[in-house]
Design a protein around this nucleic acid. Structure first.
Lengths: 332, 332
DNA sequence: AGATGTAACGTAATCGATTACGTGAGTTAA
DNA sequence: TTAACTCACGTAATCGATTACGTTACATCT
């Protein structure tokens, strides 16, 4: 069952390889009769183009790279799936590069990316630090979520983080919270900072001052979130609402509240961010800001396709995907 | 900054492409002096081999395919990451094919897989139905988790599902449960059936009869799990332990128990399966059977590497990865 | 000295496609 | 009738590597 090549197809159908190739690519320049004959043979012998031969000649691999911080994080996995969904239909295959935390791996990844000659790249930036000196040579790149260093060079698709933060906090305020904690990743990552801006914006709109004691900057994990809220409680700092910059942190907060027998949402209301699957199963279920991961992935893919076809496009494009509020049990 | 080819490197270093190639591949047949000179030029011009040209000639892509049911499921994502970790170090890149539920996509995927000529394939079977008629032609395949149809043809790496089920139920029995519900996926998927066997085995060992009213076969999602347990309660069927074939189902069970104010673990103990991240944040935190996803991925990758190098290996290999119990709050 | 072996290369074919260019047959227009 | 065009192909170069085979120079052996 050795693979059949274009040359053999040509021989069998009594034409040249050029004609077979033309038929394969719908390029015209053949009669209907030959077309049908060639197609028949193609079908009969289960011809499959050798992607490498084609790629060598055309300088296209029909594959694109997706670089992301952590595939086991549902948020990124969902984006990856959305990307795959769009691009696979267009005949592209997806090479996923999972950065994990391995600096060494980043090198390997970049080398690999370059020598494989992917046709395009989607860079999903996230909670990890990102490489500064990656030179994305001449292939089109689009970035999901903003990344300080690339800011000006690469088109970006991102959620409306600031409005999300605003929406979360406005909701808390509307439902009666007055002293709202912001529980956030300690690092100055742009999306997180935008959410913080939204927090400030909402407070201001409702005539409240922001209180620096209520801003908790912590490492990104459940334990630290729990600890931070515990500390607030034990220090007797008064609050009746929590906006967590991520559902994971919200979960930690809920734990701390539960241990101290503070009732949610009666005594304290909580709003998270991301709307991960887990948030609908926590106790109580979590009100959160939903990020449309599917849209992020789809838009990025479509934009990348555009860039790869006509590179005349404005590479300074920026696109904002709306977020929305999912109300569950942690708000009244 | 056009890419430099082997021909140019040859010209610059004053040798033939053959020699450059030999140096590149450490094939011998050149003096130390030339070797050094060529390496210098290679370095200086940042030579990167064109994977497609090389692949065309050698019939190797240095890439492997990973087919899995659902990338957004943490369990599969973790396996994928473990695979990537091993294989990337060996210079392979990973093409992930996410089946989702799309039958049409499966076709596309198979075509793609074949025409790209991946060097090997890791097939992670799971909770979805699987293709029967995939002909994995001549490339090495290894399968993670058993799959009825492939059973005899392909080497398999799997968790010790039966022992896991046994361990879960034995733990419940040891800690005082007497009437144990099994909450399981309704489909006859081998891993699930093995877990069920373990359930039976433990009951038998402790001298209990299995009660068919306590075996709940349900569609794989949280809502149905909750519903199933609710039904048991409302029908007055007595039980004091639950073994869920998956953490997700356990979460649904916990919800139902909580709504009916049945205390966990005092009135009912619960053990799940998988040890997903979420299980340590549920309320109460979930005792569960941990699957070593990293080992599954690593072993599979190593086996695949073996198969790709010396194909003399016994393709009937089977390997079982141990599971273990993680005790948390849902057991006494 | 002449035969033989070997290290260190170079030459050119090859992998499986695409595509610029050439060619012959048939059609149309003057 | 003949020049000019068009259509439907075929020929052969090309992409960037690998590698079988040939060649040269030099050392070794008899």
């Amino acid at each position: 069952m050795a693979k059949v090549t274009i040359k053999e197809i040509a021989q069998i159908s009594g034409v040249s390889t050029a004609t077979v190739s033309r038929v394969l690519n719908n390029a015209g320049g053949y009669s209907d009769k030959t077309k049908r004959r060639v197609l028949d043979v193609l079908e009969k012998y289960h011809y499959q183009t050798n992607v490498m031969a084609k790629g060598l000649r055309t300088r296209q691999t029909k594959s694109i790279g997706v670089v992301l911080p952590d595939l086991t994080n549902e948020y990124f996995a969902k984006i990856a799936v959305a990307i795959e969904h769009v691009l696979m239909e267009k005949g592209y295959s997806i090479n996923i590069y999972n950065l994990s935390e391995d600096a060494n791996k980043e090198r390997l990844m970049i080398r690999d990316l370059e020598s494989r000659g992917v046709d395009g790249l989607i860079y999903v930036s996230g909670y990890k630090d990102l490489p500064k000196k990656v030179k994305y040579q001449s292939i089109p790149v689009v970035c999901i979520n903003r990344l300080e260093e690339m800011d000006k060079e690469v088109p970006v698709i991102e959620s409306d983080h600031q409005y999300g933060g605003y929406l979360a906090v406005r909701t808390l305020l509307e439902k009666g919270s007055k002293k709202i904690v912001m529980l956030r990743d300690e690092r100055d990552i742009l999306p997180i900072n935008f959410r913080y801006q939204g927090y400030l914006e909402a407070l201001k709109e409702y005539g409240y001052q922001s209180d620096s004691r209520l801003i908790c900057r912590i490492p990104f994990n459940v334990g630290h979130a729990q600890e931070a809220i515990t500390t607030l409680i034990e220090n007797g700092i008064d609050f009746d609402g929590i906006f967590a910059s991520s559902d994971l942190l919200a979960i930690g907060a809920l734990k701390a509240l539960q241990i101290h027998e503070i009732k949610v949402p009666v005594d304290v209301q909580v709003v998270g961010f991301d709307n991960v699957t887990f948030s609908q199963y926590s106790h109580p279920t979590l009100t959160t800001i939903h990020q449309a991961t599917d849209q992020l992935g789809e838009r990025a893919s479509e934009l990348l396709l555009d860039l790869m076809n006509n590179q005349n496009l404005d590479s300074n494009k920026r696109m904002v995907v709306p977020v929305d509020l999912v109300e569950r049990e942690t708000t009244r």
